[in-house]
Design a protein around this nucleic acid. Structure first.
Lengths: 218, 218
DNA sequence: ACCTGAACACCGTTCAAGT
DNA sequence: ACCTGAACACCGTTCAAGT
């Protein structure tokens, strides 16, 4: 998962002793805490070290610079997120496209909405980084899981599955993020979520080989 | 357009004399240049002032802090973008939903892809800010323009136009941004763009009151 | 192997002095 | 009304000294 991480963002070394592991864990936790409590703007190495109860020098033994710390934090987060989405996809093997779409949307939606401040703060902290590798590795895992899922649909099949899958993934994730960032009143947001599902289903039906009744091609 | 800007991000004062206007313009241009040439990480007040040929003190007469400068820059950008999209929408009054969707997707796509480094750099510079007001004001303009456009469609009409419009807007903008950020090979990106259009059309047909042939409701 | 914290370079921001 | 730039507080990062 971390193969293509840019060299300058790689951790300096891995902890070997127990106390080192504790140090690293404390640093990660402190970073999240400072991020939530004080915001991305006040997230300084000094404050993180202080909150973690370690010296500033300790931090720099593991991370070559501040950015690498944020990078690692986001990597952890995206790894967990990809795991959840992959699991949701696997659970829908052989189901209908409607069920699949609902599962995919809900998995991502829930993950983002569970702790909105964390989502927002993490996102801010990584936006200024070179996050291409993070995105690519997350996307690769999710792409694969969704592809397998949709290939197993019991009520549709697709000639150009790869393109269909890519479109759907970007649509679901892009739309959910867009709604999330706009911070709409909950009821309105939920309406869009439901419409998003309808939209995905309408699309999948329109490009499916089966059920020509729903084929909207002119 | 700037009514709801948070007080702490408001410019300190407006230029009244000609030389002051020139100073402000130089600062904006220098900011963009430094952003592109050196990246968001090296975008410092010192460098901007140096490149603009003004003293650091001059900058602080107009902006209470660095963030306010970035905020203003993004405001300008989003204002222009909203203008382009609004124009594209107006040009499609009375057209088919297919034409409308294509116009909307293309307008946003082109704006983002024209100068990708600028798009990316600007986005990074604003991510760490409190950008809710920026998003809200941009969204309000685009929402209104798209709503008017879709209400005039010659081949569809919608009972819940507001929800349909919101969904479509978020889907188009979210998906395009998602694709943009992933940095896919151009050919693949274009395929998704075309599928995105198909998706939007399939959705609009499925929720339209007219053309029951395309209604996919069970 | 891991931790410490004084020291240094640089950045954001101010403000008294100028025109 | 507008501009200047030395001065200050704070931040990121290093490194010699420790256990």
């Amino acid at each position: 998962m971390t193969q293509s991480t840019p060299a300058h963002l790689t951790p300096r070394k891995r902890p070997r002793q127990a106390r080192a592991k504790a140090t690293l864990e404390a640093i990660f936790q402190a970073t999240t805490q400072v991020l939530i409590a004080e915001g991305p703007y006040r997230l300084t190495t000094t404050r993180v070290a202080e909150r973690a109860g370690v010296s500033i020098g300790s931090m720099y033994q593991y991370f070559p610079h501040k950015q690498a710390l944020f990078y690692a934090l986001n990597e952890n987060y995206l790894d967990a997120l990809a795991g959840r989405i992959t699991a949701a996809c696997q659970a829908q093997s052989g189901a209908s496209i409607e069920q699949m779409v609902a599962a995919l949307v809900n998995a991502y939606w829930q993950a983002k909405m569970e702790r909105p401040e964390v989502t927002r703060a993490l996102y801010r902290s990584v936006a200024e980084l070179d996050n291409q590798a993070l995105i690519a590795s997350f996307a690769a895992r999710v792409d694969a899981a969704a592809l397998t899922m949709f290939a197993s649909a019991n009520d549709a099949s697709f000639a150009d599955l790869t393109a269909v899958n890519l479109t759907l993934i970007h649509c679901v994730f892009g739309t959910v993020r867009s709604v999330f960032e706009r911070n709409l009143p909950p009821q309105e947001a939920l309406t869009i979520r439901d419409h998003l599902m309808m939209m995905c289903v309408a699309y999948l039906r329109s490009v499916s080989d089966r059920s020509p009744v729903y084929n909207t091609q002119k």
